[in-house]
Amino acid sequence: MQAIVFDGVSYVYPSGVRALKDVSFTVERGELVVLMGENGSGKTTILKHLNGLLKPTSGKVFVDGLDTSKYTVAQLATHAGLVFQNAENMFFESTVWDEVAFALKNFGYSDDVVRKRVDWALRFFDLERYAGQSPFTLSGGEKKRLAFAVVLAWSPPIIALDEPTIGQDSLQKEKMLHMIRLLNTQGHTVIMASHDVEFVADLRPRIIAISSGSIVADGPADEILPDTEILRRCSLHPPQLALLMARLRDLGMPRKLVDVDTAARLLVERLRP
């Protein structure tokens, strides 16, 4: 069964802004998908449809087989966990432990399950030692990890992340990269909005490129990221190595996304005397 189905979805905000125009795509279980596009292109609007915060103005959205127009946010949230871009600014409990337990209690899990899940989530995100501390005392990177823990505690089969790398330094980004890969290999469907091309290049997901509310392209990162035409339409610029390879096409460099080792091997082969 498909994890996510968007079938001809249009969405118009009450202000009259048409944020999505006839968007259709399908995400299989266990896929890793990144929505790319500039700010205001509709990425966040798509994510908010996954747990029913927004319902399509026309068209249908199915999440885990459920028609989102027929369920409440609380019901859908157990299927699709959404981590907001500034989720680290949404804490309110007096301890890190309670912050993670909040959602589990809302979903009606028994005390025993709540305890097990909170402990698991804190361990997974390396936050155990802060369990009894106030969330407000954490550093920026730790808060970001707590924001993930808060949603992943209930282990939703679909995980939606909105611009997780914004304002993060390279160490935190690397941790995030590992974590996203790990969650994905554990069978979670991950869908993420991002315009961080280098981060996405490292992740090598399937990319859905969006521009002003419409899908421009949908395919593997290997094909999309080196495609300067698609990126230009989405106001993005290609990752450094893809750009370099494109410029050196006449020297026999390939039109695809390469990592550092591959780029080095290809260049050395071509240049070695």
Partner: peptide, 9 residues
């Protein structure tokens, strides 16, 4: 929106 996503009704 964020708190509703965490099951707050």
């Amino acid at each position: 929106d964020a708190q509703r996503s965490r099951g707050l009704e």
